[in-house]
Simulated assay, not measured.
Amino acid sequence: MIDDLYSARILSLAANLPYAGRLSAPEGTGEKIAKLCGSRAIVDVDLDENGHVVRFAQDVKACALGQAGAGVVGEAAIGSRLAEIEAARDAMLAMLKSGGEGPEGRFEGLRILKQVADYPARHASSMVAIEALLDAVRQALKHHTDTRTNIAGAA
């Protein structure tokens, strides 16, 4: 049964991580660690003036499931906005915890991890990338707000 969990698609996503690395001087950085297994994702982002992710990088050290989730997140992050990422995270949690269908739209690829619902010990590792992206975007939005406030205050 666990062999079904590690499908060829999951292993392919895990092996081909898009946007691997770090950004120099990102506007936002998020880091999440799955305490049970130690899977870790660090995500860096820059946003445009409308809050869309325009630059993205991720440094992920995780099991195949965490890497696969990061693969999907890497494919979908550019162009995303906070509300989309929050909705994807919430739908992913519902998929893993209560039988939900999973994310829609640009993050629909995370549905590949639906079978992880049967393995509660793997839930946190599957979530590290999307949660790190969410934290990075929130931090970048705060950076944008702080920058606008500083500019307005200097005028």
Rank of each mutant, 00 (worst) to 15 (best):
S125P: 06
I2Q: 12
S126E: 04
E27N: 02
D59V: 08
H52T: 08
I112R: 06
A136T: 05
T145Y: 09
H123V: 15
R9M: 14
G79Y: 02
E131G: 04
E31G: 01
G38L: 09
H144T: 06
S80P: 04
M127A: 12
G105V: 13
A34M: 07
E101P: 13
E101T: 13
P18F: 15
Y6H: 07
S7C: 05
K32N: 04
Q115K: 15
D46K: 10
A87S: 13
V116M: 07
A8I: 11
S24K: 10
E31F: 01
L93E: 12
G38Q: 09
P120D: 06
D3I: 07
L113K: 03
A76L: 09
A117C: 12
A62Y: 05
A34K: 00
L134E: 09
S125D: 10
D44W: 00
A136S: 05
R111M: 13
A77F: 00
A34G: 05
A140H: 00
R40I: 05
A136H: 02
A41S: 12
A77T: 00
S98N: 10
A117E: 14
A155R: 13
V53C: 05
D59Y: 03
G69S: 10
S125V: 11
D146Q: 11
G105K: 13
A88P: 09
A83V: 14
N150S: 10
L82G: 02
A77I: 01
L113E: 06
A70G: 04
D90Q: 11
R40W: 09
H144Y: 08
G51E: 01
A15P: 01
A57M: 13
D44Y: 01
A64I: 06
A136P: 04
L23V: 11
L113D: 06
V60L: 09
A76I: 02
G153P: 11
L5W: 05
E49C: 07
L141F: 02
D90R: 10
A14S: 14
A8V: 11
A25S: 12
L65G: 07
V137C: 05
A68E: 03
F107K: 11
F56H: 04
V43F: 00
Y119I: 08
D135G: 15
S12N: 13
